[in-house]
Every structure is written in C-alpha cells, then in structure tokens.
C-alpha cells in the first residue's frame, strides 16, 4: 500500500489489492517462526494482515462471511510483525499503547472495517486462496484479492488514534 503517510486517523477509504488473513493461532505461529528465524508463510515486508476467520465457502462462492475479529487479542504479537516490515492491519476495536507506539515507530497503519458485517464484506473479495496453516481450519492464512474494500484509518503513521478522539 502506497502513501501510508498521507493517511489520517478517522479518514474513510476504499482499498483494492492483496491482503492476508491471520488471527490468533496464526499470529502465535508466525511469532514463533520469527523467533526461530524460520521462513514465514508470506513476505511480511509491505504486507497487510486482516484479522479474520471466514465461514466455509459456500458451493460456487469465492468466500463465506468474512468480517473482522477483535484486534486486541493480536496485540502481543503485533510489534514483532511490524518490525519485520508489516505495513498495515485490518481489524476491529482499540489497540494497546505498545502497538500504537510500534505503529508510529515502524510507520504502519491500523485500519478498522465494518464490524459484524461479514456477509456484506464478502462482496468485496474477488479471489481467495488458502496458502498456509491449513490445519488451523478457519484460522488458516488466506490470501485475498479485494476490490473497493471499505476501511477506516484507526491509527495512522503518526500514532494518532481514532479512539482517542472522543
């Protein structure tokens, strides 16, 4: 994602491109892989992670319901991923002070998207392919191609948070 620095907390944007799903157990595994200096399932440099565990894909469909899960549960793993080059995250809810500081330090961005709207959000997914951690079921890593995916900037590269604003 280009021009991350120009984004401001509170801004609503639409995004088209590649994002990777990863939630609790995938984060735990990636954190262990980083510690053990092992290869990660996808290149973190410049990547966007979506905290999401979709429902099963209906017959003939691209993906099932696929809204965001609570981001705070990923907080303990996030600074290490940002240090590896992760550029942005999509989820729901507030983040810890540590994550906010790491976002500022590594010039990342945290987005939120419509929470509890998994059916609606599936409209914006044009392609989905499971690429790693298949044994985790809905927590596997899925590479998604999205078009016009709605996002709200929740923490910008300056560390400003939408949750501090009100």
């Amino acid at each position: 994602m280009r021009n991350l620095n120009s984004l401001k907390a509170g801004q609503q944007i639409i995004f088209s491109g590649t994002i990777y799903t990863a939630r609790d157990q995938a984060h735990k595994r990636m954190a262990e892989a980083i510690k053990a200096k092992k290869r990660l399932p996808f290149e973190l440099e410049g990547a966007i992670i979506y905290y999401c565990g979709p429902t099963k894909t209906p017959k003939g469909g691209i993906i099932g319901s696929c809204g965001p899960t609570t981001s705070a549960r990923m907080d303990e793993f996030t600074p290490a991923l940002l240090a590896q080059g992760l550029s942005a995250m999509i989820g729901k809810g507030a983040r810890s002070k540590k994550v906010k500081d790491a976002i500022k330090k590594y010039q990342g961005v945290y987005f939120v998207t419509y929470a509890g709207c998994g059916a609606l959000l599936s409209k914006y997914i044009k392609h989905a392919e499971t690429i790693a951690y298949r044994d985790l079921g809905p927590e596997a890593i899925v590479k998604l191609e999205v078009k016009d995916f709605p996002l709200i900037v929740a923490i910008d590269t300056h560390g400003r948070s939408i949750y501090d604003a009100h």
Binding site: P54, T55, G64, S65, A119
Partner: peptide
Amino acid sequence: NSLAICQDT
C-alpha cells in the same frame, strides 16, 4: 444470499 450474518457463527 444465505450467508452468515457474522463470520463468528
């Protein structure tokens, strides 16, 4: 579309 209202079923 017979989709789950939320992915967390």
